[in-house]
Design a binder for these strands. Structure first.
Lengths: 108, 108
DNA sequence: TCAACGTTTCAAGTATTATTGAAATAATGG
DNA sequence: CCATTATTTCAATAATACTTGAAACGTTGA
């Protein structure tokens, strides 16, 4: 994951609706959810949910797969992990205070 | 760290110059660096560096301390860790693929 | 094929953010 | 106190992003 990919991913998550979408999709795991279900869950019109989902997909943070009339969106956990790994390893030089937050759940 | 703080922090880092500033300040550790030195390091005019530094400071990611004619900026490692911890714990539900990136350096 | 459903695209308006250079502020040494 | 240095603020412009509703698209079942 290079710098510009990380910037895209950070920008994609720096928005209330999209952060909520990610949280919701995480709870759905590999089942994923359709755009309509997602829009309802985060209280957004379908066009708005679609817009934000395509932003997340462009940033690589979610995947889309058509299933009949629905399009199922899922979190791309590797991409989320890659972004976080970049922040920890490349950007923060594995600084102790940063690593502690990952190794001790609830610390930060 | 609550949702809106995390969104501010993510937005602050979702910009090339500011991400570079963070990386540079990480290498400086507790010594920190002045706005002029930072601007030179990231190839930005002083007014631009100042603007981005205040954005980072507003998001809590850096601290500012006047030392004689200079103002020394330092990374707030706790804030960076807090943001990352939020993503891992609250947002991603400690999903294995995400955690792996923190525990195995170089994995992602 | 046609109607219905879920989803995406589009256009217009609004808002936020980035950039630049100039002016203003703050602190120090002479 | 004044000149110098470091930094911030300001104003104007440009670019990017958000929201909304309507229209268009693709898929399915009748």
């Amino acid at each position: 994951m290079d710098e510009s990919q990380v910037i895209d991913a950070l920008g994609a998550l720096a928005q209330e609706t999209r952060l909520r979408i990610l949280r919701f999709l995480v709870t759905k795991g590999s089942d994923g959810a359709s755009a309509g279900e997602i829009g309802e869950a985060v209280d957004a019109a379908s066009s708005r949910a679609s817009f934000h989902l395509s932003t997340l997909a462009n940033a690589g943070l979610v995947t889309a797969e058509r299933k009949s009339r629905h399009i199922i969106y899922r979190v791309n956990f590797d991409a989320v992990g890659g972004m976080i790994g970049y922040l920890i390893n490349d950007c923060c030089g594995n600084h102790q205070a940063v690593i502690a937050c990952c190794q001790i759940p609830g610390k930060c």
